[in-house]
Design a protein around this nucleic acid. Sequence first.
DNA 1: ACCTGAACACCGTTCAAGT
DNA 2: ACCTGAACACCGTTCAAGT
Lengths: 252, 252
Amino acid sequence: MTDGKREKSWRAGPVRIRVTLPGEPGPSSPKERLTVERIVDAAMDLMAEQGYDAVSMRSLAKALDTGPASLYAHVASKEEVDQLVLDRISAELVVPAPDPGRWDEQLRQVMRDMLALYRRHPGSARAAIGMIPSGTGALRTMEGLLAICDAGGISPQASAWFCDLAAAYVSAIAVEEAIWVQRANSTPPGEEPDHPAIDEQLRAMMEALPAAEFPLVTSMAAVMTAGDGDDRFEFGIAVLVAGLRAVSDTYR
Amino acid sequence: MTDGKREKSWRAGPVRIRVTLPGEPGPSSPKERLTVERIVDAAMDLMAEQGYDAVSMRSLAKALDTGPASLYAHVASKEEVDQLVLDRISAELVVPAPDPGRWDEQLRQVMRDMLALYRRHPGSARAAIGMIPSGTGALRTMEGLLAICDAGGISPQASAWFCDLAAAYVSAIAVEEAIWVQRANSTPPGEEPDHPAIDEQLRAMMEALPAAEFPLVTSMAAVMTAGDGDDRFEFGIAVLVAGLRAVSDTYR
DNA sequence: ACCTGAACACCGTTCAAGT
DNA sequence: ACCTGAACACCGTTCAAGT
């Protein structure tokens, strides 16, 4: 966008026609200037392709064809990179305008969308661990959730704390899933990809427990390992929203 | 316990009388044999004193007066050490015998106790991230939760998934708290320990937002930052248990 | 069987020096 | 102002060698 600025650095010789598009330097173009945006782009690419653990200040630097120290002119720390990645991602979430008759379904849908966001950006959930949601994207989501709760007649205190609760639950599920996926992907290609599923193994393990000490776990092994991630998540958000409705009046 | 075995390695000279007690080597005693127990002990001490990040295979080895490679004769990986630490900790939790008339209060109490456990062992929550609860301690807790749900007339499917939900929620809160605590502790002693509280800052930040774009967040800043960790947790477990009661019949 | 030293392939961050 | 090389103080894990 600010092409004039970029050209200034090589004001020599006749006019050079740049054949390459802005964000896409040709194979032998002069090194592109480092910017926060390029660092975040690289981090998101790396995360999508190789997972959260593959994103380090050093791998980031390598992807940007420079040394790790150079990044510190633009970001303060690895933590800030994670924060910026999360901000970028959370901008993708759109919260619907409140519809009073459907406030509960709307709350559940926002939570589904939050999980979908984490899934669409594998690794992002791990960056979110213990992050205080100060970015504009996260605050926009909160604003939207509060509006839906308000339309549903939920008390302010319950609405406010519910935002916390919903965010904590969704990110906990997302992190759990991310670690599962990572473990599955890091299984050496030759080896069995665990495909009879960890569920099967878990179920077998539970059934093999001493029935005298674990009567319920052994007899309920099937139901305990029933359903996929989506089934469990649907249960979770149903519990959360039904619970919110139930306790709303006692928190005002 | 198997002292005979231990003596065998230095069967020379007259009988040596061991003055030191089994787990308590004197200042100049021969190096104590490495065991999984000693490794787990050291990991828990290190974690309690300096936090999760201070526990590494190398720091562990140093604490045990050996090199990192030596640990691998007893444990397969850092992950296994974390698993073992968690097993040890979860053994501390006692789940009460079910009392049908108080099933909801009992569920909440078990969740309070789970959080208290993580708090009593600072850093343990971070070890629990993404851990599949295969230890006997975790399974005992599940058995207890299932018994309480059963006494409360909750359907098996809802009970089973609720165990997951409760564990995910409590550990998410514990991890969040642990990261907070860690950040507070790692503030350089000279600097302000943030004591007007992050809550204050967060509240100020929310109030400073453009009211046109964030009408609810700005006007509800006070209520959004209200309460301490316990207040929020009480709200969370109230929502969970009330929600479980509400949806139980639709999941059977 | 258990322990060791040394090495391999990594981390995040700092800092003096360059342009 | 921005970038760099080199260094500091770390990681988890492996492996050949010792006892």
